[in-house]
């Protein structure tokens, strides 16, 4: 089975399975877990587009997560814009910030680890700025006023919010599957594999990278916006801290880099692992991060193409090529 087919089957199966969970259980812990996994999957999808498909490894996707989260929150709190519209505004802002950071780094022809370091720097600068600026709530953070109404993007039932998050993940997965079959997708993989060869074939490498960066930032921004609406609280470390940059990249690497199903598979796996490590290891702070690190090392050592790549190999070994 080709990777694209496997990704399609896997995604449809997982998403359908996930969609019925609230019908089976109303347990808050389960829904909390899943909402968080969806937010993570969305952030991971954004990162995967840029790194998995286009080969540009960002270490600072927190910048876009934060802009999406803070953008949406500030637009509704300070400008009085409807939260749904503010959510879209946050996504657009994240896309713009992505385009600007992309233009600056790619214009300077930063590649490989230099690009990673610059994105990390941008995220850190934003984190420090937001932490120091009174308008963004400073170190105390932002509390979005509780006002549970559908029009406010706040729901009495966790399931409703979960379904919206799930629908967004489904939408983005579909978008990735479509991109894989377009010229844009082919150009991104060409850039990943060899930039000079792509240029020789008429690919405007700079423009394609900017497009990828913008879209990637917007998707990760959507994850930030969802986070803000769900938890109704933000501070600079949540919005712009390295944790989300790391989780957004670990999930697709574990799930399957450059595959449409990878981010969701990886996000679920990571979340499960995190929960398990918390119950097993008790209350040692950061133990789940230690486990993430260990898992990452194991995946890179033994499963270089992630869960999806491994499943594909198994499928081929069974003669289902």
């Amino acid at each position: 089975m080709r990777q694209e087919r496997l990704s399609l089957v896997l995604s449809v199966g997982l998403l359908a399975g996930l969609a019925v969970v609230p019908l089976v259980t109303a347990a808050n812990t389960v829904l909390n877990f899943l909402v968080f996994a969806m937010i993570l999957a969305l952030a991971a999808h954004g990162w995967n587009l840029l790194a998995g498909y286009a080969g540009q490894f960002s270490f600072g996707h927190a910048a876009f997560f934060g802009v999406g989260a803070y953008g949406g929150a500030l637009l509704q709190m300070r400008a009085g814009i409807n939260p749904w519209v503010a959510f879209l505004g946050g996504i657009m802002l994240a896309g713009i910030v992505g385009a600007v950071i992309g233009a600056l780094s790619f214009r300077a022809d930063l590649r490989g680890s230099y690009f990673s370091l610059v994105t990390l720097a941008f995220a850190e600068v934003l984190r420090i700025l937001v932490n120091a600026t009174p308008a963004t709530g400073g170190a105390a953070g932002l509390l979005i006023p509780l006002d549970v109404r559908f029009a406010n993007f706040q729901f009495a039932s966790r399931a409703a919010f979960y379904w919206i998050a799930l629908a967004l993940v489904a939408l983005v997965t579909l978008l990735m599957l479509v991109i894989e079959n377009t010229r844009f997708g082919a150009y991104l993989t060409a850039i990943r594999e060899n930039e000079d060869a792509a240029r020789a074939l008429g690919v405007d490498v700079f423009a394609e990278k900017i497009k990828a960066m913008t879209l990637s930032a917007a998707i990760t921004g959507a994850a930030g916006g969802l986070y803000a609406q769900y938890f109704l609280y933000l501070d600079a470390n949540i919005g712009f801290g390295p944790w989300i940059s790391i989780e957004a990249l670990v999930a697709p690497i574990i799930g399957g880099l450059g595959t449409a199903a990878g981010p969701l598979v990886g996000a679920l796996a990571l979340q499960m692992l995190g929960e398990m490590s918390k119950t097993v290891a008790g209350r040692i702070p950061g133990i789940d991060l230690v486990l993430f690190g260990l898992l990452l090392v194991l995946v890179i050592a033994f499963m270089r193409r992630g869960v999806v790549g491994q499943l594909q190999r198994l499928a081929m070994a069974r003669g289902g090529a």
Binding site: A186, T189, R192, E193, N194, D196, A197, A198
Partner: peptide
């Protein structure tokens, strides 16, 4: 400079 991760067909299609 082949796009090593792609098939021959995908390479030429770029």
């Amino acid at each position: 400079r082949p796009f090593a991760g792609l098939t021959v067909r995908q390479n030429i299609a770029v």
